[in-house]
Every structure is written in C-alpha cells, then in structure tokens.
Amino acid sequence: MILRLRHLALFALSGLLAGCVPRIEVAAPKEPITINMNVKIEHEIHIKVDKDVEALLKNQSDLF
C-alpha cells in the first residue's frame, strides 16, 4: 500500500514538473542582417639589393 502511494505521488509530481517546461521560441529577425565591410588594406614592400644591382637598375630603367 505504501509503495503504491509513493508511485502515485511520484507520478503526480512528474506530471506537475512536466507542465513547468519553459517555452523556447526561435524566430527570424524582422530586418536583414547587415555586415559593414569597410576595410582598408595597405602594405609596403622593402627590398634590399646589392650596390651592383642597384646601379644596374638605375642605369637601365627600362628593365621593368
């Protein structure tokens, strides 16, 4: 008899707890998502050359 009352109490308690589950809602935003892509890229290239190569580049500027 006591075992049956325990089972009944657990069943009633589980029914009450099952009714307390929070509601979760997922919805799409009303406005579109915008991503600002204003990116500025700067770079510098430093080349170190021998004096002979530097003189060659100065004398023959039409190489490149």
Score class of each variant (00 low, 15 high):
Phe11Lys: 06
Pro22Gln: 06
Lys30Ile: 05
Ala9Gly: 09
Glu54Thr: 09
Leu17Met: 06
Leu63Met: 13
Leu10Met: 15
Glu42Cys: 13
Ile35Met: 09
Leu8Pro: 01
Lys51Ile: 08
Leu17Val: 00
Leu10Gln: 04
Lys30Pro: 00
Leu16Asp: 03
Asp50Leu: 05
Ile41Arg: 12
Leu16Arg: 03
Leu10Ile: 07
Ile35Pro: 00
Lys58Val: 07
Thr34Gly: 02
Ala18Leu: 13
Asp52Pro: 01
Glu31Ala: 03
Leu13Tyr: 01
Ala18Arg: 02
Arg6Leu: 14
Asn59Ser: 15
Ile35Cys: 07
Asp52Ala: 14
Leu16Pro: 06
Asn59Phe: 09
Ala9His: 05
Leu16Tyr: 07
Lys30Thr: 11
Pro32Glu: 10
Ile35His: 08
Cys20Pro: 03
Val21His: 07
Ala9Phe: 01
Lys58Met: 14
Arg4His: 10
Ala27Pro: 04
Glu31Lys: 12
Glu54Pro: 03
Phe64Ser: 08
Glu44Cys: 11
Ile47Gly: 10
Val53Gly: 00
Ala18Trp: 03
Met1Gly: 04
Val21Ile: 06
Leu5Ser: 12
Gly19His: 05
Leu56Ser: 09
Ser14His: 10
Val26Gly: 02
Ile41Leu: 12
Leu13Cys: 03
Ala9Tyr: 12
Asp50Arg: 05
Leu57Trp: 06
Asn36His: 02
Lys40Trp: 14
